[in-house]
């Protein structure tokens, strides 16, 4: 699942993932809210729940950190299937440290998305 407010980045990253055959099924979410509502909607359909969530930090209204706060408190049968990886272009030291310190975040990747880095994470799942 890709969560990013930039439609261009959603398109680019989805394309990078599909060209490199890194996922069978990609869910595109234009906002943190959209991402959360997808998770809630499909709480009982394991096949619709993402194994990997690529989350942007800088988003209007609800940002990546707000997403994580809600996500952490979702029932285990939703979050148990997924890992969260941050994908952001931020250079802000504070944002980077906050993202890395968050217990729900597996890793922090920088845009532009490098398929090799993502492959490493997926292979380790």
């Amino acid at each position: 699942m890709l969560v990013d407010d930039s439609p261009v980045d959603l398109k680019i990253n989805a394309k990078i993932i599909s060209i490199n055959d890194l996922a069978e099924h990609i869910i595109l979410c234009k906002s943190a809210e959209a991402g959360l509502s997808h998770l809630r909607k499909h709480r009982d359909e394991v096949s619709e729940l993402p194994e990997l969530i690529l989350l942007d930090i800088q988003m209007p209204e609800m940002d990546g950190f707000d997403f994580l706060e809600v996500y952490q408190n979702l029932p285990k049968n939703i979050t148990g299937h997924s890992v969260v990886v941050i994908l952001s272009s931020t250079l802000d030291f504070g944002d980077i440290q906050r993202a890395e310190a968050n217990p729900s975040v597996l890793k922090m990747l920088k845009k532009p998305l490098q398929p090799a880095e993502l492959r490493k994470i997926i292979d380790a799942l």
């Binding site: 980045d9 680019i12 990253n13 394309k15 990078i16 060209i19 800088q58 272009s89 802000d92 532009p112």
Partner: peptide, 18 residues
């Protein structure tokens, strides 16, 4: 600057990668 200015630039680099 670190967000608004850089984000679209990084998108361009992503497109070049594609």
């Amino acid at each position: 600057i670190s967000h608004e200015l850089r984000a679209p630039l990084v998108s361009v680099l992503g497109i070049v990668n594609l």
